[in-house]
């Protein structure tokens, strides 16, 4: 008695691996939550060191940079959720395609959203600059070119779901047949 090989049956829970899902979830949590939190903590300690003695309130600078990291963490929640089925279904499984496709496309969108389309801005008013004639400073970093290339790479990665499926389908079916054989024995 062989295993069914249609797309719908590939979505069955017994076709996935809970261990893989857990590993993928942990990786996503590290990438989108732990690393930004670590960066926030690092920036906070840097700000304390830089502020002492200088007239500039680096706390305000850090607060504004933190907004981008906060935004990254919030916008990345769908990616963290998508990472679970992505890790759950093995390569060569039909069910992996839609999740990988959506993951890649959303990642491209996230890059554009959390960087405001590739323009990072920091503004300081007089209170953050200490005493003096300077009443405000604004710094814009325009990184559109890099962000658009990174977004394009994410889109390419998304469509690689089909190539990955084609490459690993035979291995996947072989492993299914092997499992079926083992259970019959």
């Amino acid at each position: 008695m062989g295993m069914k090989e249609d797309a719908i049956s590939d979505f069955r829970l017994r076709r996935g691996s809970p261990g893989g899902a857990f590993l993928s979830l942990c990786t996503a949590l590290v990438k989108y939550i732990m690393i930004p939190l670590g960066l926030l903590s690092l920036l906070g300690s840097l700000a304390n060191g830089l502020s002492s003695g200088s007239g500039l309130d680096f706390g305000t600078v850090i607060d504004q940079l933190a907004v981008y990291l906060d935004r990254l963490m919030v916008y990345a929640i769908p990616l963290i959720i998508l990472a679970i089925p992505l890790g759950f279904y093995p390569k060569g499984n039909y069910a992996r395609i839609p999740f990988k496709l959506v993951y890649g496309l959303y990642l491209a969108l996230l890059l554009l959203m959390f960087t405001d389309g590739g323009v990072l801005s920091i503004s300081l008013d007089g209170s953050a600059l200490g005493a003096g004639e300077i009443s405000g400073v604004r710094v814009d970093l325009r990184i559109q070119a890099v962000i658009y290339i990174l977004a394009l790479i994410s889109v390419v990665k998304a469509f690689m779901a089909f190539a990955e499926f084609g490459s690993y389908r035979k291995d996947y079916l072989d492993s299914l047949a092997e499992k079926a054989g083992d259970s019959e024995e």
Partner: peptide, 27 residues
Amino acid sequence: LPVTVSIDGTYFHRMLGFGFALDYEVP
């Protein structure tokens, strides 16, 4: 006189850009 000095440019083979604006008052 409220004065703003703004500096805009690109670097790194024009892949990155920066904008800098400083507001101050000329007494």
